[in-house]
């Protein structure tokens, strides 16, 4: 069990948080922009898609680092520690599932609009246009994304609570000296 996070883990954690927040905010904006503002809508969707894929890459990198470095030790009672581990597992699952579902949502959409990663690199079509599947995916992507954000807010709230209780988890994630 690792005592501290590797700087790359800390950096990737905050990058993931920023990407999830930006992706979620963009989702609201891009779906509210009227259809006739097509160019704006197009680029907002592209930005949303790139942000989601960057989040996916960040999460994959984090899981690889965690597999190599192990889980950071906590000073929580065993029951709370197990709950925290379960919460983190669900966060990781959603962080993987939401961008993957987003990719497939774009992939099966009625208009063949490419996904241009970072506005440049066209990504391959996996399933292709499928109206029925698109209907399911768009809902699933949205519901799980809301779930992810709710869970992330809970995660942040608990981190603040631990911080208030004098545990050094937040300080450690910010790269300050851990009280652990």
């Amino acid at each position: 069990m690792a005592v501290e996070w590797h700087p790359a883990q800390r950096w990737l954690h905050w990058a993931t948080a920023g990407l999830v927040a930006a992706g979620f905010a963009l989702a609201w904006v891009m779906t509210s922009v009227p259809f006739r503002q097509m160019a704006l809508k197009f680029w907002l969707y592209q930005a949303h898609k790139s942000i989601g894929l960057l989040a996916l890459l960040a999460v994959v990198a984090r899981l690889m680092l965690r597999a190599r470095l192990g889980r950071r030790a906590t000073d929580l009672p065993p029951r709370e520690d197990a709950l925290a581990a379960a919460g983190h597992a669900v966060l990781y699952i959603l962080l993987l599932a939401v961008p993957l579902l987003g990719y497939l949502t774009a992939d099966t959409a009625p208009l063949r609009i490419p996904t241009l990663f970072l506005g440049l690199l066209p990504l391959p079509v996996v399933l292709g246009r499928d109206a029925a599947l698109f209907g399911v995916l768009v809902t699933l992507h949205r519901v799980l994304a809301i779930g992810l954000v709710v869970l992330a807010i809970g995660h942040a709230g608990l981190a603040l609570r631990h911080h208030a209780a004098g545990r050094g988890v937040l300080a450690a994630m910010l790269g300050r000296r851990s009280a652990l």
Binding site: F42, L111, R112, I113, P114, L116
Partner: peptide, 9 residues
């Protein structure tokens, strides 16, 4: 076409 980005049918 949409300026090289994609084509609508």
């Amino acid at each position: 076409g949409h300026f090289g980005l994609f084509t609508s049918e």
